[in-house]
Computed example of a mutant assay.
Amino acid sequence: MTHQSPNAGESRLDRGKRVLAEIDGEAGHKVIAALQDIAPDFATYILEFPFGDIYSRPGLDLRAREIATIAALTAMGNATPQLKVHIEAGLNVGLTREEVIEIIIQMAVYAGFPAALNGLFAAKEVFAARGLSLGEQG
């Protein structure tokens, strides 16, 4: 998928919805829908700021942004549900299974083996759900 820059006249919310759909597809919509009964304003914040403002910036393509996001969430070590969503997103924007694994292994140097192990097990679940073998794309 190619990165789409902001459209003139497009609201942050509309741009966020468009970019979320491009990156996360169904997984992203599930997160937003799950917030509707408890914190609908927070769902709007997610659409407007990360997706409407940051992900839609022209400086990096979506593939590079997902590499950074997978690395950061792996390094955090406590964001497994979000990591799974972004592994899915990485696959959606062109990362291979092997690239995702290498991103997570690289984090062992900076975040430690427990964080990398947790990340690898999260990736394993995502890959199994997609029926992927080594080197395949989502």
Rank of each mutant, 00 (worst) to 15 (best):
L132H: 10
R57G: 00
S133V: 13
Q137F: 01
I46Q: 05
P40E: 08
G135N: 10
S133H: 11
I105D: 07
S5D: 14
A71W: 04
T44M: 05
V126N: 04
R63Q: 05
E102S: 15
R65L: 07
R97S: 11
V19L: 06
D37I: 04
E98M: 07
K17S: 01
I105C: 11
T80G: 00
T96F: 04
R130E: 13
K17Y: 00
L20Y: 09
T96A: 07
I23M: 03
E88T: 15
F42D: 11
R130C: 12
A39S: 13
V100E: 01
R65K: 10
P50C: 01
Q137P: 08
T80A: 06
T69L: 03
G94W: 05
P81F: 09
K124N: 06
L62C: 04
I87T: 01
E22K: 12
L35Y: 04
E10M: 00
N78Y: 11
T96D: 09
H29M: 12
D61I: 05
L60M: 10
L47K: 12
A71H: 06
L117Q: 09
V19M: 02
L120F: 14
L62D: 12
A72Q: 08
D24V: 12
S133N: 11
E22M: 13
G25C: 03
A27W: 07
I101M: 13
D61C: 00
Y55T: 00
A68I: 13
L20T: 14
T74K: 03
L47P: 11
F127E: 09
L95E: 03
P6T: 02
G138T: 04
Q82D: 09
V100T: 07
A111P: 01
L120Q: 05
L91C: 03
